[in-house]
């Protein structure tokens, strides 16, 4: 399998990982070759982790970390980690605050999905800037071999994983989600390291 398809599968795995866990994702995690394939596809090393939890304890872990029904639930939505808008004309007090929903990233993501024609069938968990949606879009771009667009997307819409890693670490140091998110972050950082901007891409100075 070519590298970009391996990376695509890696992203699709992660897209599943950040949804409430079910059999499919568990099957992947519990596979004996999981760690090897993961490290190969991402080109990074997984930090040592915990024992493999049972599916039911994985479900409980997901609920306590990410569910809005748990107190201090960690957000998986990009807008939450970024200033709400950079629109200088927005006459709202929270315009530049973090921690709000439907910020610029959501708006941009919604635009991209609509324009590309990636319709979401009604899904109660659908937020345009939910991490899983971003990952699915990134996977799609890899599949289409749209490397520049992929790089832009990943560098601009997944550049908040440091904060996500920190948030998980604060709640549970030995979480499987922590280790896996750290790895995703390393993978993503390869693309964000030079803080891609469109101008640079144009100048063909991609690093």
């Amino acid at each position: 399998m070519p590298d970009h398809m391996k990376q695509r599968d890696l992203l699709l795995f992660y897209a599943e990982l950040y949804k409430p866990p079910g059999d499919a994702v568990y099957e992947v995690i519990s596979h004996p070759d999981f760690r090897t394939e993961l490290e190969q596809a991402s080109g990074a090393a997984l930090n040592d982790c915990c024992d493999l939890p049972s599916l039911s304890s994985l479900k409980e872990e997901f609920r306590s970390l990410f569910s809005s029904s748990s107190q201090n639930g960690i957000s998986l939505i990009e807008s939450f980690y970024k200033p709400w808008t950079t629109d200088q004309t927005a006459a709202l007090p929270f315009a530049q605050s973090k921690g709000m929903m439907m910020g610029d990233p959501a708006w941009h993501m919604r635009y991209l999905l609509e324009e590309i024609g990636l319709n979401s069938s009604y899904d109660p968990m659908f937020y345009p800037d939910h991490i899983s949606v971003i990952l699915e879009l990134a996977a799609f771009l890899l599949e289409e071999q749209e490397t520049d667009k992929f790089t832009l997307l990943v560098s601009q819409h997944l550049n908040w994983l440091d904060d996500l890693v920190e948030a998980i670490r604060k709640q549970k140091k030995d979480s499987l989600y922590l280790k896996l998110t750290e790895l995703l972050n390393k993978f993503v950082n390869e693309f964000t390291i030079c803080n891609q901007s469109f101008d640079r891409l144009k100048e063909d100075s991609v690093c």
């Binding site: 927005a90 006459a91 007090p93 929270f94 530049q96 605050s97």
Partner: peptide, 12 residues
């Protein structure tokens, strides 16, 4: 205060 924060995009 609140109207001013709105107008000038000030955080809380």
């Amino acid at each position: 205060r609140v109207a001013c924060q709105m107008e000038n995009d000030l955080p809380p």
